[in-house]
Amino acid sequence: MSMTIASSVDEVLAAMAAGAQPIAGGTDLVVGARAGKAPLPEVLVAVDRVPELATVEVGDTSTRIGSGVTHAQLMEDVAVVHRFTAIADAAALVGSPATRNVGTLGGNVMNGSPAMDTGAPLVVLGAEAELTTTNGSRRVSMNELWVGPGRTSAAADEFCTALVIPNPPAASGSAYVRLEYRRAMEIAVVGAAAAVTLDGDSIASVRVALTAVAPTILEVAGLDALVGTSYHEPEMELVATAAGEQATPISDLRASDAYRRHTIGVMARRAVEAAVRRAQGEQISVPVNRALGIGAAS
């Protein structure tokens, strides 16, 4: 086995062109190997010491989050917290401080788990993954990227260099809410992200995506009826019903399919509610799970 420590993106790409697989924080790869899930790849390139991957750059129309940005950075980065709050909500719920300090956004995205926390926020915020090889870059939407549990459409030599997210218009807000049985070291049983833009008191646009209820992150369709409403009880019910109907959850150790189908509706409803309130200018601290409801600190 060999491992190269890259100090630039070019070095990463060269190593991958030669067959290496990238490793960032190792929170999926190493933990999985030690658990006997899959052996470590024979040839690795470490990408955690590439400074250009660890930046958040706010442009005129979009923001580029380097794939090496850690969850700990995401939950505190001013640009992320203010513009893409759902990502900060999600990053703050991942694992433990140790996991968040080494685990990266790029790693989370390319691992492709349907239970990943940052996935649903990226979908509702319209993010694209920037995939790069020695021959150049292309961008794919998140739905194009994830093709199944743990599977992406990226070629073997394509490296995720960044996630690029359009800057939201004024009066926008987003949130990620997760069902959790305990308050640390938890994995999503179900989770939901929402991104909302308001026009005055009513909803101008809304997107909702769901965690851990389908083979990949699932965007909820048919929410057009919400546009023009001010999100009160009937609309909340519509979101919950749509989420529950479109989810295709499984029964496993963590929950039955019936319980998942019910709670995904609850999470979706709460995510939209928190996103609306943020869009209205209310300061709801990150993560929503600790600011509101059962998980709240007080």
Partner: peptide, 10 residues
């Protein structure tokens, strides 16, 4: 992961 002990956060 599946046998859920309480954490100090709880």
């Amino acid at each position: 992961l599946e046998y859920k002990l309480q954490t100090i956060a709880d």
